[in-house]
């Protein structure tokens, strides 16, 4: 295979994907801890820091449920697949000078992976043959139709400015001026999209308390653990991808590049996690119109502005 084009990054062997997965899980743990602390503070209950550990212990001990006439294989694929997708998303993110998968279309790859979440969440709701789960699955697709297209166009803006779909090139193109500074709308729409595909906070209608947990209503034990971990991992992957796209990648003073990537990821991730408790759920039937009539035109205007500037700068 002739390796196409030039890249400033060092490609590490495929085996390092294990480390990428480990980092994602570590960040997921961090996200769960932040959420646990925020919950403990708001509800005046003890033990915020230990919540993830206890919850993992509980779910490891709990038995998996079987429901009547469930479509078990599809159900297991749905709940277990989210962690895999999060890892596949994060492998295109350069960690300082290294990257596992230096795809020339890394940005589109990320986008393709986030679309896979549609399938997995729906399957998790479909599998157990339960009305609440099925409704949750429908709701997620309805949200998806609202956030996905704006997200796609938000992801288009940085590559236009960088003249490349390669994630490493996009990060390198921001020397001096981070894209977040002159693409704030794209950044905002991107974060909304991340909340969307992580089924988190304002976009958690699919697992809402009004449908007894929705797609997660029938999950227990290991399946529930994987599903919940997958949500946190998706948030982490979304936060990590924002770093090379909008926040200058590994650029920063004093610290080495890889550490800057992790620090910036943690900042974005914390902000995303804390959004959960502060906002009500955006009901899909209302958000659909906002997505198409507000977010999509806003993202398109942003892309237009970025294109004009990119042409002007040559």
């Amino acid at each position: 295979m002739p390796e196409a084009a030039t890249s400033s990054l060092t490609l590490v062997p495929v085996g390092w994907v294990v480390l990428a997965g480990a980092i994602v899980l570590g960040l997921a743990w961090f996200a769960a801890t932040v959420d646990g602390v925020a919950t403990a503070r708001a509800e005046a209950s003890p033990t915020g820091l230990g919540r993830p550990l206890r919850e993992v212990a509980r779910l490891m001990r709990q038995r998996r449920r079987a429901t009547v006439e469930a479509d078990t294989p599809l159900w297991r694929i749905g709940s277990g697949g989210l962690v895999v997708i999060a890892t596949l998303m994060v492998i295109v993110v350069p960690l300082g000078p290294w990257t596992v998968f230096d795809s020339p279309v890394g940005v589109v790859w990320f986008n393709a992976m986030d679309v896979c979440v549609w399938a997995l969440v729906w399957l998790t709701g479909w599998g157990p043959n339960s009305a609440h789960g099925l409704v949750g699955g429908y709701r997620f697709l309805a949200h998806g139709l609202g956030y996905e297209l704006p997200l796609m166009f938000a992801l288009v803006a940085p590559p236009i400015a960088a003249h490349s779909l390669r994630v490493g090139d996009v990060a390198a193109a921001q020397h001096g001026l981070w894209f977040v500074v002159w693409m704030p709308i794209a950044f905002l729409v991107y974060l909304i999209g991340v909340l969307g595909f992580s089924v988190w906070g304002p976009f958690s209608a699919a697992v809402g308390s009004d449908i007894a947990g929705g797609v997660a209503a029938e999950l227990s034990g290991l399946d529930r653990l994987l599903f919940l971990t997958g949500r946190y991992a998706l948030l982490a992957a979304g936060a990590a991808f924002a770093v090379p796209m909008f926040l200058g990648g590994g650029a920063g003073p004093l610290l080495p590049g890889w550490l800057w990537v992790i620090v910036k990821t943690i900042v974005v991730l914390t902000a995303l996690v804390l959004a959960r408790r502060r906002l009500p759920v955006l009901r899909p039937d209302l958000f659909m119109e906002v997505g198409w009539l507000v977010l999509l035109p806003a993202a398109l205007v942003q892309v237009l502005v970025v294109s004009v500037i990119a042409v002007w700068r040559g």
């Binding site: 403990a40 509800e43 005046a44 209950s45 003890p46 033990t47 919540r51 206890r54 509980r58 709990q62 449920r65 609440h132 308390s209 007894a212 947990g213 997660a216 209503a217 029938e218 999950l219 227990s220 529930r224």
Partner: peptide, 16 residues
């Protein structure tokens, strides 16, 4: 339940 740091379950499958 809140004082102990326990949780309110959302569905029977979620409950211990």
């Amino acid at each position: 339940i809140g004082r102990r740091g326990w949780w309110l379950a959302t569905s029977p499958a979620d409950a211990d």
